[in-house]
């Protein structure tokens, strides 16, 4: 077992043990905090596929996060009000259906965004993905049917068959399971032929084309898969907060996802998990002391960018090697 694998296992155990202990001590707040870590880690894992493996610096992943959230909010609202969506299709409070819808819609929206954005590279790619996300953000703000600027409340957390999702711990465990399953999938994809081509596209797109694999196709598929995972996280986030608002679409959110990845270690399996743990801890601990806690986040980010490019995981486990 490599050192990084050991650290990954420890992180997973820590993330699981904390809310279990908190629930045992009757502190449900900390369970919710841990769920926030899990959901943000999942959203950033989606981005990590595009950014970490493929080198696509998407500054618009909030679009997919928000879409997942609004899918959950809109479906739940329609079910709550017993109003059909369109053409007699009813809303739903069933999480499996909401999750599936969120993933599919995030993927469907990511496809045209990817096709257009991937015609550019570098700074232009960053800007065009940002532009798409901001378009959706302003659309959400100006659409009164679903709350506009005020967002949508989900009055009762949606249901998963056989799990009491209204309790913090079962909901945490459901989210944790989704995260672990996604990380397993991420690891498989990373080691597959597709993952090889994707990482080669990051290192040297010309080389990949010279062996007959068009980087565009590889990047497009990665971008869509990445959006689907982040969309999934958005649906979980909506149910966690029992609220969705346009801020899920804002560029701050996109930036936050990038920050999580850089904090933890980009391209590393548990980078987003480590990043989300650091981020939520700082937000909670420093946020309790000062409103300006993001100043300290900035300092830490500066330190990592200057002295520890591999993020926390890079610091703990050294350089990755491809055998």
């Amino acid at each position: 077992m490599t050192r990084e694998t050991t650290i990954n296992l420890l992180l997973a155990l820590l993330l699981l043990a904390m809310p279990l202990a908190a629930a045992g001590l009757g502190e449900p707040f900390y369970v919710t905090l841990a769920t926030r870590v899990v959901v943000l880690a999942l959203a950033a894992t989606g981005l990590n596929l595009a950014l970490g493996l493929g080198g696509l610096i998407s500054f618009g992943h909030a679009a997919f996060f928000g879409l997942g959230g609004y899918v959950a909010g809109i479906l739940a609202t329609h079910a709550f009000n017993a109003e059909p969506l369109v053409a007699g299709i009813p809303g739903t409070t069933s999480m499996p259906i909401i999750w599936l819808t969120a993933v599919v819609i995030a993927g469907l929206v990511a496809l045209p965004i990817g096709i257009i954005s991937l015609r550019t590279t570098g700074i232009y790619f960053i800007m065009i993905t940002l532009a798409f996300a901001q378009m959706i953000y302003y659309f959400a703000i100006s659409w009164p049917a679903y709350g506009g600027e005020d967002g949508l409340s989900i009055y009762v957390r949606n249901a998963f068959p056989g799990i009491n999702t209204t309790q913090p711990l079962p909901y945490f465990l459901a989210c944790f399971t989704v995260l672990m399953a996604t990380l397993l999938l991420f690891r498989l994809v990373e080691g597959s032929r597709f993952g090889s081509a994707l990482q080669a596209a990051r290192q040297n797109g010309t080389r990949l084309a010279a062996v007959g694999i068009a980087p565009f196709n590889i990047w497009l598929v990665a971008f869509v898969l990445s959006a689907m995972i982040t969309g999934f996280a958005g649906a979980l986030y909506a149910d966690l907060n029992r609220f969705v608002g346009p801020s899920m679409f804002s560029w701050h959110m996109s930036g936050e996802l990038i920050v999580l990845i850089i904090l933890g270690g980009k391209g590393r399996l548990f980078g987003p998990v480590a990043g989300a743990m650091i981020f939520v801890c700082l937000e909670y601990v420093l946020g309790g002391i000062t409103e300006r806690w993001q100043f300290f986040l900035g300092l830490i980010l500066l330190g990592i960018v200057l002295f520890a490019r591999g993020g926390l995981l890079g610091l703990l486990s050294g350089k990755p090697r491809h055998a």
Partner: peptide, 19 residues
Amino acid sequence: MLAVQSRQGSSFRFFRQVA
């Protein structure tokens, strides 16, 4: 291996591990 994979015409395989 990347070139071999291209010649085999199969970069959209997501599970089997190349290692």
